[in-house]
Design a protein around this nucleic acid. Structure first.
Length: 734
DNA sequence: AGCACGCCGACT
DNA sequence: GTCGGCGTGCTC
């Protein structure tokens, strides 16, 4: 008799022990009874029954494994141990962690046969008659000729062919016996190495060459390189050439991209370069396809995987390199359930496998930049822009006492008019990230601050009060500015919708395109909107974050950033970093060499160091300045943090639960706790929300403290009455 | 998370 | 007199 410890998909931080008449390997899936239910569990430990005590348990308290789904483990040890690490680090239940990591096919009660049948794929290959026919094929059979040509060098999976050719074309080739369908075993030995088309590459610039050289000289050990290069400096070419070297050595490559960055064009570029299908993973890939790619990557059949966040959980036969493009992008952090950061996890995986990690960005996150500056990461620079100098000049619009219409300075409205009349596009950008309205003096720019925390007070319109989100101090709204005694106190609070309306009033004959999450719910709607913009259907573009990601706007010659101040005076300590990244990304994406553009930042604080640095010295300087501030305030990345969030219909319950959480923490000299304080969005769907920020100087101390907190929370009645969650390395304060 | 048990209000 | 509301408790 054996004791089997299994991870079961429930939100409980423990394994469950079952009995079985034989030993089971780690990673084997089993069906186990669980309460009144049957669940698919994953074997984590297996040992023979030893002590009498254990023997007694086998015929009493323990239940038996119901059935074993796999004859050999489908889940490799590497993933299993990564799962354990994740569960420990993010303090997330192990069963749910594995659930998040694995394709849904493995979590459902799918038999081994059913899963393995996926690796026997229908494929299409050309016959000698087909090759002969290529020269004699009638001119009107265009598609048939195209498909034959595609098959000439190598056969293709039927599912891939079907995406590009109709059934009629495929059937025609089979009927004429020019091509034949056959079973291809995707688990067969690695065979792509000699099929790659390599060497077809542009000559690298001196800087690119240097970066490629540094990375490829150490492909057999763990290292992290930050590829720090402005938009258009050719980061992708560096990736491609490094990837080529890795593939040549028979190793696989994983490329992670932000959610919005994975376009068909990107995939095509990789496929064209290497002449081999790429495994593509994102939220829209079907469960079946996902399972296929998972198996193909695991067996070594797929040389290259490109995917979003969750692709970091792909198993590999022999991984040789991980690339994370646009590493600063927040979409790499999962915001619910297992709140992992794919970029951080990429570093963990690369280290465990002893392979290099390349992080690319024009605007590196402060976490990554700090690691590059302190020498933990290699810092590789690409400064040259392929098309010459940055075509966008940046200016400050001083808003103090300046007449404003619809949130835009009159001076800029005139300029916008000129640009539109010249046949160009104008982009009006509203920065709403980490937005919390502050009380601002329109005459002098003074912002009402908390006397205790020296942080801006948040304006609560309904309660007619100012509140500090750091210490919960509050006071009434003053009538006059504390500083210059002017009575023109204003609160910013414009949304994209209102902005669009106001602009339509100002420019009645102009077509306005709104680009934000609300207007473009689906990815298709977003693509469609971008196509319209490229086609010149709209002259005025109004957008949020989303426009700064991935897309180029060649006809935009003027960019207006409406509200810089809300980022300078945000309760979110990352707001300034995000603003700097946005402005820089936008500047890189608007205009082109022969059509120089201008960018305007509207602010009541023209002298603010962040604004000044951004305009005159660029992101790299701002980022270093922000890092220095973070260091003196001893916040991330100079300390580590986690956030406990709670919500309930009753506000006092939220307070109580988080206060209990706080009281479970070690003393203040080890851990500093802030809160319970307001979340940036205080009430959502009728539920009051608050958070407790927990800071420590080391990951170890934080982890330990959170374990105390967790055991107190799971045992307490107060916590059971609220919805609560724990977010290690949290970046979301909403 | 599910899925039970359990003890109080409006219905055949 | 039952049906069903969701509070509390357990799952090897």
């Amino acid at each position: 008799m054996y004791l089997i410890q299994a991870a079961v998909p429930v939100p409980l931080r423990q394994l469950f022990t079952y009995t079985h008449d034989s030993s089971l390997e780690h990673g084997v899936r089993v069906v186990v009874p669980f309460g009144k239910r049957e669940l698919v569990g994953i074997v984590m430990e297996s040992k023979p029954v030893g002590s009498d005590q254990e023997k007694a348990a086998t015929d009493g308290t323990l239940k038996a494994v119901q059935c074993v789904l796999d004859t050999k483990p489908l889940i490799p040890d590497e993933l299993l141990s990564l799962g354990k690490w994740l569960s420990d680090y993010y303090l997330h239940p192990i069963g749910d962690t594995l659930l998040t990591m694995l394709p849904s096919w493995l979590r459902k009660n799918k038999s081994e046969q059913e899963i393995m049948s996926l690796v026997n794929q229908q494929a299409l290959k050309i016959l000698p008659e087909g090759k002969d026919a290529l020269s004699t094929i009638p001119a009107n059979a265009k598609q048939q000729k195209r498909l034959l040509n595609a098959l000439r060098e190598k056969s293709a999976l039927l599912s891939d062919v079907k995406q590009r050719f109709s059934n009629a074309v495929i059937n025609a080739l089979v009927d004429k016996q020019w091509a034949v369908q056959y079973q291809q075993n995707l688990e067969a030995k690695v065979d792509w190495q000699d099929k790659l088309t390599l060497g077809n590459k542009p000559i690298a610039s001196r800087e690119q060459g240097a970066a490629i050289g540094v990375i490829t000289s150490q492909l057999t050990t763990f290292s992290v390189s930050l590829l720090d290069g402005v938009t258009g400096s050719g980061k992708t070419e560096v990736y491609l050439q490094v990837i080529e070297t890795v593939l040549l050595r028979g190793r696989q490559v994983l490329v992670l991209v932000p959610e919005i960055g994975l376009t068909p064009q990107t995939v095509e570029r990789f496929e064209r370069r290497f002449g081999h299908p790429v495994g593509v993973l994102h939220s829209k890939v079907s469960d079946k396809k996902r399972m296929q790619i998972w198996l193909a990557a695991k067996s070594g059949k797929l040389p290259l995987i490109i995917g979003t966040r969750s692709a970091i959980f792909t198993p590999f036969y022999q991984l040789g390199l991980i690339v994370v493009d646009e590493e600063h992008d927040d979409s790499f952090k999962q915001q619910d359930g297992l709140r992992y950061h794919a970029r951080d996890l990429a570093a963990v995986r690369a280290q465990r496998l002893g392979v290099p990690l390349v992080l690319g960005s024009a605007t590196p996150s402060l976490e990554t930049l700090n690691n590059a500056l302190n020498g933990r990461y290699q810092h590789l620079h690409l400064s040259a822009r392929a098309g010459g100098a940055n075509p966008v000049s940046q200016y400050i619009q001083d808003m103090r006492n300046h007449p404003v219409q619809g949130g835009i300075a009159e001076h800029l409205i005139e300029k916008m008019q000129q640009h539109i009349q010249a046949g160009n596009q104008v982009l009006v950008f509203l920065n709403r990230r980490g937005f919390s309205p502050v009380l601002l003096c329109h005459a002098c720019g003074h912002v009402e601050m908390c006397h205790r925390c020296d942080r801006p007070m948040t304006w609560h319109k309904a309660k007619r009060q100012l509140k500090c989100h750091h210490c919960d101090a509050q006071r009434g709204v003053p009538n006059r500015c504390d500083h210059c005694h002017s009575d023109s106190l204003i609160a910013d609070g414009l949304g994209t919708e209102q902005l669009e309306q106001a602009l339509q009033g100002l420019f009645p004959s102009v077509s306005i395109a709104r680009i934000d999450r609300d207007a473009t719910r689906t990815k298709d709607a977003l693509e469609k909107r971008f196509d319209e913009i490229r086609a010149g259907k709209h002259q005025l573009l109004v957008g949020t974050q989303i426009v700064a990601k991935g897309h180029h706007f060649p006809d935009v010659t003027m960019v207006v950033i409406v509200d810089v101040d809300s980022a300078l005076f945000s309760a979110d300590l990352r707001a300034a970093e995000k603003l700097a990244q946005l402005v820089t990304q936008l500047a890189g994406r608007a205009g082109r060499a022969e059509k120089p553009g201008e960018m305007w930042l509207q602010t009541h604080h023209p002298g603010h160091p962040i604004v000044q640095e951004l305009i005159h010295n660029g992101y790299a300087h701002v980022a270093r300045g922000l890092l220095a501030e973070r260091q003196s305030a001893n916040v991330i990345p100079f300390s580590v943090q986690a956030i406990v969030k709670a919500e309930s219909h009753e506000q006092y319950k939220v307070q109580k639960a988080l206060q209990l959480a706080r009281s479970a923490l070690p003393p203040a000299h080890i851990i500093s706790a802030i809160g319970p304080v307001q979340t940036l969005i205080e009430k959502k769907q009728g539920r009051y929300r608050m958070m407790l920020i927990v800071r420590a100087s080391s990951r170890k101390a934080l982890n330990l403290a959170l374990r105390h907190l967790l055991s107190a929370m799971t045992a307490s009645k107060e916590a059971k009455q609220v919805r609560w969650s724990l977010d290690v390395d949290a970046i979301d304060l909403t």
